[in-house]
Simulated assay, not measured.
Amino acid sequence: MDDQRELSDFVRKLHHENNSKHKVIGSRLCYYSFKFNHRIYEELYEGHLHLSFDPRGPPVDVVFVKVAQEDAEIIFRRTAAVNDGVVLRPWTHLFSKQKEFDDLPEDTDLRKGIWVLCYDRFEHDLKHWTNLAKPKPKGIAYNDKLKLPIKTDDDRLNEFWCNSIRKLIDGVCNIHKEGLYHGGLGSRSNYVFIYKSLKIINIKGSLDKLTDEQCEARKKEDITDLLWMLDNCYDDFIKKVLGHPFLLKADQRMRLFDHYDTMRNCPTTAQRVNFALALSAFDNFKSWNSTSTVNNMDSFMSGVYNHSVSKKKQQKKASYSGTVSSLLRYLRNLNHHYHKHGLAAGSLEDVERGVTTHFRGFLELLYRHLEL
C-alpha cells in the first residue's frame, strides 16, 4: 500500500468482518517526520518516529534510508530477521510522499514518492565518515578520537578497527548461517556507526532456493565485497583476512595444518600456539579420536591414524592422544601422507572434505586465534 492512509481503512474492514470469538484484529498508528532538501540528492534523511500512545510523547530519533521500491519489503524482512549484534535492525519500511507544493519541482523525489527503511539514528554511514576523515587543509581536522588515527604509531590498526573488522567477519558468517546473504557489502553506504560500533544495514539476499554451488558463490562474494570495501584503508589486516580458510582451496587449507604444527614445534612460537590450543574455544575437539569418530573415518584417514612408523628398525604404531595438539599433529601427518602415498585416497579435495566432516571448524579456529 503506497498510501499509508489505505491501511487504516483495510484494518477497519477486517475488524468489521471479524466474526471469530477467538481472534483479535487491531492496528497501532505511528507517525513520522523528516526534513529534506530538494536541491541536493540525498540517500538518507534524519527524522523522528512517534510510537507513543500520547501524540505529544517523546519521539524515537531515527534515520530513513532510501531503497528501491522493489527491494523495500524484502530488505526490511531479511534485515529484521537476523539476530546478530553487528546488524542494525530496522523499525519499519515506508512509502513517503510530500504534499504537492507548487513551488517544488515536479521531479523532486519526495513529490514523486520514495521507499525508505527506518533505522535507529546513527552518526554516519561509512561513506560519509570516510569523506569527513580525509586529510584537510592545515588547521581544519575532523576530530574522532575513537576511530582516528586508523593506525597506531607502530603501524598497526587501532583497537576500534581491529575489533570492528573481526565482528564484521563474524557477523557476515552469522548472516549466512541464517540462510541469507547481504549482496551489497561492496558499498560503504551499507555500514553505519552507532553507539561506538560499526554495523551493517540493508540485507537483501536469500540462500533458500539456490544450489550449493550458488550458495558458496554468494557467501564468497559477500566476503570478497567486504575485503574490497576495506582494502584501501587496512592493507595489513586485509592480507591476513585474504588468507582465511574460507577463501582457500583444498590444498591450501591442508597446508595450513602443516604450518600451524610447525609453529607448535618452533621455540619462538610454541608458547603462543599451546596457549591458543588450551582455550575453551577448542573444547569441542578434545577427545577428538573417540571410537565412533575413528570407526567412521574413510580408509585413507583411518590408515594414516593407524600407520606404523619405523623406529630403531622396529615397527611402532603412531599414537595419538585425545588432546587438541595431537589432532593438529594428526592432520599435519594426513597432509604429508597424501603427498607421499595419496593416490589411493582420491583427490585432495576428497581428503579435505573428510577432514571437514569430522573436524568442522577446527581450521577456522586455529586461524582466528593464531593469525587475527
Rank of each mutant, 00 (worst) to 15 (best):
M1S: 07
F10E: 04
N18S: 04
S27C: 09
S27E: 15
R28L: 12
L29D: 14
Y32V: 00
F34R: 02
K35P: 04
N37T: 04
Y41R: 02
E42H: 13
E43F: 10
L44A: 05
G47K: 00
L49D: 00
R56F: 11
V63H: 00
F64P: 04
F64M: 05
A68R: 14
I75D: 11
V82L: 10
N83L: 06
P90A: 05
T92I: 09
F95V: 00
K97F: 06
K99M: 11
K99H: 12
E100S: 15
D103K: 06
D103R: 11
E106R: 08
E106N: 08
R111G: 07
I114K: 11
V116A: 07
Y119V: 01
Y119W: 11
D120L: 10
H128D: 10
G139K: 03
L146E: 13
E159S: 10
W161A: 00
I165S: 02
L168M: 08
Y181H: 09
H182P: 08
G183R: 01
G186N: 10
S189T: 05
V192K: 02
V192I: 03
S197C: 14
I201G: 02
I203V: 13
E213F: 15
Q214M: 12
T224Y: 15
L230F: 06
K240I: 11
H244Q: 01
M254F: 05
D258R: 14
T262K: 04
F275W: 08
A276E: 02
L279H: 07
D283K: 00
N289E: 09
N295T: 01
D298P: 10
V304W: 08
V304L: 04
Y305F: 13
Y305I: 05
Y305D: 03
N306C: 04
N306K: 13
K312F: 12
K312N: 14
K313Y: 09
K313V: 08
K316E: 13
K316W: 07
Y320S: 04
S321H: 04
T323R: 15
V324P: 01
S326D: 07
R329G: 12
H336M: 01
H336D: 01
Y338M: 05
A344Y: 11
A344D: 08
D350M: 14
D350P: 00
V355R: 04
T356D: 00
T357S: 08
F359T: 07
L366Y: 02
L370Q: 07
E371A: 09
